[in-house]
Protein backbone atom coordinates (compact mmCIF):
# COMPACT_ATOMS: atom_id res chain seq x y z
CA UNK A 1 0.00 0.00 0.00
CA UNK A 2 1.33 3.37 -1.00
CA UNK A 3 1.97 5.98 1.69
CA UNK A 4 0.48 8.85 -0.30
CA UNK A 5 -3.32 8.87 -0.06
CA UNK A 6 -5.29 8.99 -3.28
CA UNK A 7 -8.39 10.35 -1.61
CA UNK A 8 -8.06 12.60 1.41
CA UNK A 9 -11.19 13.41 3.35
CA UNK A 10 -10.66 16.00 6.00
CA UNK A 11 -13.04 17.29 8.71
CA UNK A 12 -16.07 16.70 6.50
CA UNK A 13 -19.37 17.99 7.90
CA UNK A 14 -22.84 18.02 6.34
CA UNK A 15 -26.07 19.29 7.89
CA UNK A 16 -29.53 18.77 6.46
CA UNK A 17 -31.60 21.41 8.21
CA UNK A 18 -31.22 20.64 11.92
CA UNK A 19 -29.87 17.14 11.29
CA UNK A 20 -26.15 16.55 11.21
CA UNK A 21 -25.66 13.67 8.79
CA UNK A 22 -21.87 13.68 8.82
CA UNK A 23 -19.69 15.40 11.39
CA UNK A 24 -15.99 16.08 11.43
CA UNK A 25 -15.16 12.98 9.37
CA UNK A 26 -11.54 12.43 8.41
CA UNK A 27 -10.02 9.45 6.63
CA UNK A 28 -7.69 8.60 3.74
CA UNK A 29 -7.94 6.10 0.94
CA UNK A 30 -4.86 4.67 -0.77
CA UNK A 31 -4.38 3.19 -4.26
CA UNK A 32 -5.10 -0.54 -4.25
CA UNK A 33 -6.83 -0.38 -0.90
CA UNK A 34 -10.27 -1.79 -0.08
CA UNK A 35 -11.78 0.43 2.58
CA UNK A 36 -15.18 -0.37 4.07
CA UNK A 37 -17.55 2.12 5.58
CA UNK A 38 -19.83 0.47 8.12
CA UNK A 39 -22.31 1.56 10.74
CA UNK A 40 -25.98 1.35 11.66
CA UNK A 41 -28.69 2.74 9.41
CA UNK A 42 -28.64 6.52 9.40
CA UNK A 43 -24.98 6.65 10.44
CA UNK A 44 -24.10 8.82 7.43
CA UNK A 45 -22.53 6.23 5.11
CA UNK A 46 -24.52 7.03 2.00
CA UNK A 47 -24.29 10.76 2.75
CA UNK A 48 -20.50 10.39 2.86
CA UNK A 49 -20.65 8.63 -0.53
CA UNK A 50 -22.79 11.38 -1.97
CA UNK A 51 -20.43 14.03 -0.63
CA UNK A 52 -17.40 12.31 -2.16
CA UNK A 53 -19.19 11.75 -5.49
CA UNK A 54 -20.37 15.36 -5.59
CA UNK A 55 -24.12 14.83 -5.25
CA UNK A 56 -24.03 17.24 -2.29
CA UNK A 57 -21.47 19.92 -1.54
CA UNK A 58 -20.07 19.54 1.98
CA UNK A 59 -20.93 22.21 4.55
CA UNK A 60 -17.42 22.15 5.94
CA UNK A 61 -14.23 20.25 5.35
CA UNK A 62 -12.48 19.17 2.20
CA UNK A 63 -12.16 16.24 -0.17
CA UNK A 64 -9.07 15.85 -2.31
CA UNK A 65 -8.49 13.38 -5.15
CA UNK A 66 -4.86 12.92 -6.11
CA UNK A 67 -3.97 16.16 -4.31
CA UNK A 68 -6.68 18.19 -6.07
CA UNK A 69 -9.69 19.57 -4.18
CA UNK A 70 -12.87 18.09 -5.62
CA UNK A 71 -15.46 19.15 -3.04
CA UNK A 72 -18.04 21.43 -4.62
CA UNK A 73 -17.41 20.14 -8.16
CA UNK A 74 -20.41 18.73 -10.04
CA UNK A 75 -20.87 14.95 -10.21
CA UNK A 76 -19.77 14.59 -13.83
CA UNK A 77 -16.57 16.60 -13.24
CA UNK A 78 -15.62 14.36 -10.32
CA UNK A 79 -16.34 11.24 -12.41
CA UNK A 80 -14.18 12.66 -15.19
CA UNK A 81 -11.30 12.95 -12.69
CA UNK A 82 -11.44 9.20 -12.18
CA UNK A 83 -13.97 8.61 -9.42
CA UNK A 84 -16.76 6.25 -10.47
CA UNK A 85 -19.57 4.73 -8.44
CA UNK A 86 -22.32 2.15 -8.35
CA UNK A 87 -25.68 2.73 -6.71
CA UNK A 88 -27.49 1.03 -3.88
CA UNK A 89 -30.30 0.18 -6.30
CA UNK A 90 -29.41 -0.92 -9.82
CA UNK A 91 -29.64 1.92 -12.29
CA UNK A 92 -29.09 0.44 -15.75
CA UNK A 93 -29.79 2.38 -18.93
CA UNK A 94 -32.82 0.24 -19.68
CA UNK A 95 -33.29 1.27 -23.32
CA UNK A 96 -29.73 0.42 -24.35
CA UNK A 97 -27.85 -2.79 -25.11
CA UNK A 98 -25.53 -4.35 -22.54
CA UNK A 99 -22.48 -3.24 -24.51
CA UNK A 100 -23.80 0.30 -24.91
CA UNK A 101 -24.46 0.46 -21.16
CA UNK A 102 -20.81 -0.26 -20.53
CA UNK A 103 -19.68 2.08 -23.31
CA UNK A 104 -21.47 4.90 -21.50
CA UNK A 105 -18.97 4.29 -18.72
CA UNK A 106 -16.20 5.08 -21.24
CA UNK A 107 -17.79 8.48 -21.90
CA UNK A 108 -15.01 10.52 -20.35
CA UNK A 109 -12.49 8.59 -22.47
CA UNK A 110 -14.19 9.31 -25.79
CA UNK A 111 -16.06 12.59 -25.55
CA UNK A 112 -15.20 14.30 -28.82
CA UNK A 113 -16.77 17.39 -30.31
CA UNK A 114 -19.78 16.93 -32.57
CA UNK A 115 -17.75 18.31 -35.44
CA UNK A 116 -14.98 15.73 -34.96
CA UNK A 117 -17.58 12.96 -34.81
CA UNK A 118 -19.28 14.15 -37.99
CA UNK A 119 -16.14 14.42 -40.09
CA UNK A 120 -15.01 11.04 -38.75
CA UNK A 121 -11.64 12.10 -37.34
CA UNK A 122 -9.27 9.20 -37.00
CA UNK A 123 -8.86 10.01 -33.29
CA UNK A 124 -12.61 9.53 -32.81
CA UNK A 125 -12.59 6.16 -34.57
CA UNK A 126 -9.50 5.03 -32.66
CA UNK A 127 -11.09 5.87 -29.31
CA UNK A 128 -14.33 4.20 -30.31
CA UNK A 129 -12.48 1.00 -31.26
CA UNK A 130 -10.50 1.10 -28.01
CA UNK A 131 -13.68 1.67 -25.99
CA UNK A 132 -15.40 -1.29 -27.68
CA UNK A 133 -12.43 -3.55 -26.99
CA UNK A 134 -12.43 -2.45 -23.36
CA UNK A 135 -16.19 -3.00 -23.05
CA UNK A 136 -15.82 -6.54 -24.44
CA UNK A 137 -12.99 -7.21 -21.95
CA UNK A 138 -15.02 -5.91 -19.03
CA UNK A 139 -18.05 -7.99 -19.97
CA UNK A 140 -15.78 -11.05 -19.78
CA UNK A 141 -14.14 -9.78 -16.59
CA UNK A 142 -17.46 -9.66 -14.72
CA UNK A 143 -18.69 -12.81 -16.49
CA UNK A 144 -21.65 -11.44 -18.44
CA UNK A 145 -20.49 -12.62 -21.88
CA UNK A 146 -23.45 -15.02 -22.21
CA UNK A 147 -25.91 -12.15 -21.72
CA UNK A 148 -24.40 -9.83 -24.31
CA UNK A 149 -27.39 -9.92 -26.68
CA UNK A 150 -30.05 -9.82 -23.97
CA UNK A 151 -32.16 -6.89 -22.94
CA UNK A 152 -30.59 -5.31 -19.85
CA UNK A 153 -33.99 -5.29 -18.17
CA UNK A 154 -33.95 -9.09 -18.44
CA UNK A 155 -30.84 -9.36 -16.25
CA UNK A 156 -31.19 -10.78 -12.75
CA UNK A 157 -30.54 -8.49 -9.80
CA UNK A 158 -27.08 -9.96 -9.32
CA UNK A 159 -26.24 -9.65 -13.02
CA UNK A 160 -27.44 -6.03 -12.87
CA UNK A 161 -24.95 -5.44 -10.08
CA UNK A 162 -22.15 -6.86 -12.22
CA UNK A 163 -23.24 -4.68 -15.15
CA UNK A 164 -23.02 -1.59 -12.95
CA UNK A 165 -19.60 -2.65 -11.77
CA UNK A 166 -18.38 -3.14 -15.34
CA UNK A 167 -19.88 0.19 -16.35
CA UNK A 168 -18.09 1.99 -13.52
CA UNK A 169 -14.80 0.26 -14.41
CA UNK A 170 -15.12 1.23 -18.07
CA UNK A 171 -14.04 4.77 -17.28
CA UNK A 172 -10.72 3.43 -15.93
CA UNK A 173 -11.34 4.98 -12.52
CA UNK A 174 -8.65 5.62 -9.92
CA UNK A 175 -11.29 5.30 -7.20
CA UNK A 176 -14.47 3.28 -7.22
CA UNK A 177 -17.33 3.69 -4.72
CA UNK A 178 -19.58 0.66 -4.24
CA UNK A 179 -22.82 1.23 -2.35
CA UNK A 180 -23.84 -2.12 -0.78
CA UNK A 181 -22.57 -4.22 -3.69
CA UNK A 182 -23.45 -7.55 -2.03
CA UNK A 183 -27.00 -6.67 -0.97
CA UNK A 184 -29.50 -9.06 -2.51
CA UNK A 185 -26.87 -11.39 -4.00
CA UNK A 186 -26.85 -15.17 -3.64
CA UNK A 187 -23.91 -16.84 -1.90
CA UNK A 188 -22.13 -17.90 -5.16
CA UNK A 189 -22.69 -14.42 -6.62
CA UNK A 190 -21.20 -12.90 -3.49
CA UNK A 191 -18.13 -15.10 -3.70
CA UNK A 192 -17.62 -14.09 -7.31
CA UNK A 193 -18.16 -10.40 -6.50
CA UNK A 194 -15.57 -10.62 -3.70
CA UNK A 195 -13.02 -12.06 -6.13
CA UNK A 196 -13.79 -9.34 -8.67
CA UNK A 197 -13.38 -6.57 -6.07
CA UNK A 198 -10.04 -8.03 -4.95
CA UNK A 199 -8.96 -8.14 -8.57
CA UNK A 200 -9.93 -4.49 -9.08
CA UNK A 201 -7.95 -3.41 -6.04
CA UNK A 202 -4.98 -5.52 -7.14
CA UNK A 203 -4.83 -3.39 -10.28
CA UNK A 204 -4.22 -0.32 -8.12
CA UNK A 205 -7.76 1.04 -7.97
CA UNK A 206 -8.84 2.38 -4.58
CA UNK A 207 -12.13 0.77 -3.51
CA UNK A 208 -14.45 2.42 -1.00
CA UNK A 209 -17.48 0.36 -0.13
CA UNK A 210 -20.52 0.46 2.10
CA UNK A 211 -21.63 -2.95 3.26
CA UNK A 212 -23.81 -4.51 5.93
CA UNK A 213 -22.92 -8.14 5.36
CA UNK A 214 -19.99 -8.75 7.72
CA UNK A 215 -19.34 -12.27 6.33
CA UNK A 216 -18.73 -10.71 2.98
CA UNK A 217 -16.96 -7.63 4.17
CA UNK A 218 -14.52 -8.60 6.89
CA UNK A 219 -12.40 -11.04 4.83
CA UNK A 220 -12.42 -8.56 1.95
CA UNK A 221 -11.63 -5.17 3.47
CA UNK A 222 -8.10 -4.05 4.23
CA UNK A 223 -9.36 -1.36 6.55
CA UNK A 224 -12.70 -0.40 8.08
CA UNK A 225 -14.09 2.98 9.11
CA UNK A 226 -17.05 2.78 11.50
CA UNK A 227 -19.62 5.57 11.60
CA UNK A 228 -22.30 6.20 14.18
CA UNK A 229 -24.57 9.24 14.18
CA UNK A 230 -22.40 10.85 11.53
CA UNK A 231 -19.18 10.53 13.50
CA UNK A 232 -16.25 8.19 13.07
CA UNK A 233 -16.13 5.97 16.16
CA UNK A 234 -13.39 3.61 15.02
CA UNK A 235 -10.92 2.96 12.23
CA UNK A 236 -8.61 0.03 11.72
CA UNK A 237 -8.11 -3.46 10.35
CA UNK A 238 -11.17 -5.77 10.36
CA UNK A 239 -9.51 -7.83 13.12
CA UNK A 240 -9.18 -4.78 15.35
CA UNK A 241 -12.64 -3.44 14.52
CA UNK A 242 -14.52 -6.57 15.56
CA UNK A 243 -12.85 -6.43 18.96
CA UNK A 244 -13.49 -2.72 19.48
CA UNK A 245 -15.88 -2.22 22.42
CA UNK A 246 -17.49 0.88 20.99
CA UNK A 247 -18.12 -0.78 17.64
CA UNK A 248 -19.62 -3.86 19.24
CA UNK A 249 -21.94 -1.72 21.32
CA UNK A 250 -22.97 0.61 18.52
CA UNK A 251 -23.25 -1.80 15.64
CA UNK A 252 -21.96 -5.34 15.63
CA UNK A 253 -23.40 -6.76 18.82
CA UNK A 254 -21.65 -9.37 21.02
CA UNK A 255 -21.82 -12.50 18.91
CA UNK A 256 -20.65 -11.08 15.62
CA UNK A 257 -17.08 -10.50 16.72
CA UNK A 258 -16.14 -14.18 16.51
CA UNK A 259 -18.64 -15.23 13.91
CA UNK A 260 -17.62 -12.62 11.41
CA UNK A 261 -14.01 -13.65 11.28
CA UNK A 262 -14.78 -17.05 9.89
CA UNK A 263 -14.20 -17.15 6.14
CA UNK A 264 -17.41 -16.42 4.28
CA UNK A 265 -17.58 -19.43 2.03
CA UNK A 266 -15.57 -22.07 3.82
Amino acid sequence: MSAIPLVSISRLTKHFGGLTAVQDLTFDLHPGEILALIGPNGAGKTTTFNLVAGVFAPGEGSIALGGERIDGLPVHAIAARGLMRTFQHNMPFAGMSLTDNILVGCHTRCSDSLFDILIGRRRVRRRETAARLRAAELIKFVGLQDRIDDDVSALSFGEGRLLELARALAGEPRVILLDEPAAGLTQPEMTRLGAIIRDIAARGVAVLLIEHDMHFLLPLAHRVVVLNFGRKIAEGTPEAIVRDRQVIEAYLGEAVGDLAMRPASA
Binding site: A53, P74, V75, H76, A79, A80, M84, R85, F87, M91, P92, F93, A94, G95, M96, D100, L103, V104, G105, C106, H107, T108, C110, S111, D112, L114, I117, V124, R127, E128, A131, R167, A168, G171
Partner: peptide, 22 residues
Protein backbone atom coordinates in the same frame (compact mmCIF):
# COMPACT_ATOMS: atom_id res chain seq x y z
CA UNK B 1 -20.99 7.91 -31.23
CA UNK B 2 -20.33 8.65 -27.58
CA UNK B 3 -22.63 11.66 -28.00
CA UNK B 4 -25.58 9.47 -29.02
CA UNK B 5 -24.93 7.07 -26.17
CA UNK B 6 -24.78 10.00 -23.76
CA UNK B 7 -28.15 11.24 -25.07
CA UNK B 8 -29.77 7.83 -24.62
CA UNK B 9 -28.17 7.40 -21.18
CA UNK B 10 -29.61 10.74 -20.02
CA UNK B 11 -33.01 9.73 -21.38
CA UNK B 12 -32.90 6.44 -19.45
CA UNK B 13 -31.37 7.68 -16.19
CA UNK B 14 -29.89 11.15 -15.81
CA UNK B 15 -28.51 10.48 -12.32
CA UNK B 16 -26.54 7.43 -13.45
CA UNK B 17 -25.44 9.28 -16.60
CA UNK B 18 -23.92 12.09 -14.54
CA UNK B 19 -22.13 9.53 -12.35
CA UNK B 20 -20.53 8.16 -15.54
CA UNK B 21 -18.98 11.57 -16.20
CA UNK B 22 -21.60 12.89 -18.59
Amino acid sequence: SAFGRACRAIRDNAVAAAAMGI
